[in-house]
Computed example of a mutant assay.
Amino acid sequence: MIFTYNQKSVGDVLMVILADHQGQKLAAERKGRVTRIYRLDNQQTVAWNIFDASQIADLSGSGQIELSEDSLARFNTELGKEGFTEILEKDAEPKFVVGEITAMAPHADSDHLNICQVRVTDERTLQIVAGAPNAKVGLKTIVALPGAMMPNGSLIFAGQLRGVDSFGMMCSPRELALPNAPQKRGIIELPSTALVGAPFDANKHWSA
């Protein structure tokens, strides 16, 4: 669940992104200050827009933000007041973490994509389709997990690349908007001592 707020560019609206609509047609229903956006095919809620948001709770920041427990409770009260039964929940798990490529195989329908198995915790390995020319088994890099928002505002969701499931993205320095990032293609390369699963820290994980 991604919370974004940009009063200067968008207005006093808290936007909450729950899921990728996967190209399906969307509809919206508004009650009071709250708009629910959902897929027509299965009625799944994919986003909320909450208007006059700063009148409901104190908000600060521009772009992706974190809500305090008090602010979250206030917005959930607003949803309930308008008759919505769903609730907003904070996702405290980091969305950018150190990962290690443990296996890699060529994509059968591409001359540059590889199907990588990437360990992101001791217990969790994700399949990620990637075209980075420097990807190799044993490489440690920064992984954007499903639900991440990139510095340019794009969102990472589980999906498919040429028919193969992919559950995240291995990031280049440029995609992470790191200072003095090289312009050439390639994911960030971390030392072998980097701890798998550690949250991304630009001061710790990057030096130009």
Rank of each mutant, 00 (worst) to 15 (best):
D109W: 01
G99W: 02
A47Y: 11
I65K: 08
E93I: 02
A57W: 00
E78L: 06
Y38C: 06
D111T: 13
S110K: 10
T45V: 12
A57S: 04
F84Y: 14
I101S: 05
K31L: 05
R39W: 03
E100W: 00
I65W: 04
G80L: 10
I50E: 05
W48F: 13
D70V: 15
T45W: 06
R74F: 03
I115Y: 04
I56K: 01
I37M: 12
Q64L: 07
M104C: 14
L88T: 06
K81I: 06
K90F: 09
G61R: 08
T77C: 09
H107L: 07
F51K: 05
L72P: 09
F96Q: 08
K95I: 05
E93F: 01
P94I: 03
N42F: 07
M104G: 13
V118H: 00
I37G: 06
K31S: 08
K31Q: 10
H107M: 06
A92W: 03
S71L: 06
V46A: 11
D109K: 14
W48E: 11
E100Y: 00
L113Y: 04
A108Q: 11
A103C: 01
R39G: 08
A103I: 06
V97G: 03
S62N: 12
F84R: 10
L88Y: 08
L88C: 04
W48D: 11
I50G: 07
N42S: 11
C116I: 01
L72W: 09
Q55N: 09
G83S: 07
V34E: 05
D41H: 09
K90Q: 13
S54M: 06
T85G: 14
N114K: 10
G63C: 09
G63T: 14
A47I: 08
Q55F: 03
N76P: 11
V98M: 01
A57K: 03
D91R: 14
I65M: 08
G99F: 01
I56E: 01
E100K: 02
M104D: 14
K95N: 03
L67R: 12
F84T: 08
I87V: 15
L88Q: 07
V46D: 13
F51R: 09
T85D: 15
T45E: 12
L59G: 02
I115R: 06
E100T: 00
A57C: 02
P94G: 03
L59N: 02
V46Q: 13
M104A: 15
N76W: 13
N76A: 12
T35M: 06
K81M: 05
T77K: 15
A47L: 11
N114L: 06
D111W: 06
P94R: 04
A105K: 15
K90W: 07
E66S: 15
D91K: 12
R39P: 04
